[in-house]
Simulated assay, not measured.
Amino acid sequence: MRNISDIIEEHIKEILGNYGEIEIKRSEMAEKFQCVPSQINYVLKTRFSLERGYVVESKRGGGGYIKIVKVKPINEMELIDQMIEFIDDHITQTRSQAMIVRLFEEELITQREAKLMISAIDRSVINLSIPLRDKVRANILRAMLQALRYKR
């Protein structure tokens, strides 16, 4: 059974698919889905992040409108290069997973490849202390992205 976050995400993506950019009002969305406005914030923060290819801007005044834009890369290489630059010298599991989900959504990798990549960067596999684990994860993810540059 899907949870409310999945339903809200699907609804927003459906609208974005038609327009590429939308403005929503947090309170109206909360009313539509019969949830608290903080639930909308949670969905926006976790499902519409830069790692996943979205820019979310809060518009102050005017009743709390939020602008969501789907960022489309010029080509696959540009997306992979941007992701490599985004990694820095360390990266959390959450941000890594979001990047892998975006690769899948952009159809650069298959669902099977995404699952393999997510498994390889999981905290249970990289059983190290946090600062070192995030550095090792960054190196692994960077190497996988480099390999994707030559996939096609």
Rank of each mutant, 00 (worst) to 15 (best):
V101A: 11
M77S: 09
M99I: 15
L16D: 05
E28M: 07
M117S: 04
N18Y: 03
I4N: 12
E105F: 02
L141H: 08
L103P: 01
E10G: 03
K13G: 01
I87K: 02
D134Q: 14
F104G: 03
T110W: 11
E57N: 11
E85C: 06
R95G: 07
V71T: 06
L44P: 00
D88F: 02
A143H: 13
S27Y: 08
V136C: 07
E57F: 04
Q97M: 08
Y65C: 00
V69Y: 01
I40V: 14
E85W: 09
D6T: 07
V69M: 09
P73T: 06
L128M: 13
I126Q: 02
F33K: 08
Q111A: 14
L44H: 04
M1F: 05
M29L: 14
L44I: 09
K151S: 15
A120V: 11
I24D: 05
K115M: 13
K135F: 02
S5W: 03
G64H: 02
D122W: 03
N18P: 00
F104K: 15
A98L: 07
E78S: 06
I121V: 15
R123S: 15
I121T: 10
A98P: 00
A30M: 13
Q34I: 07
K151H: 14
K32G: 03
M1K: 10
Q39F: 00
R60G: 05
R152Y: 11
A30K: 07
N127Q: 11
I140P: 01
N127D: 15
S5Q: 10
L128K: 12
I22K: 04
E31G: 04
E113N: 05
F104R: 15
I126H: 03
S124W: 05
E10N: 12
R112A: 12
V69R: 10
Q97S: 11
Q93G: 15
L148K: 15
K115S: 14
R137W: 05
I68V: 14
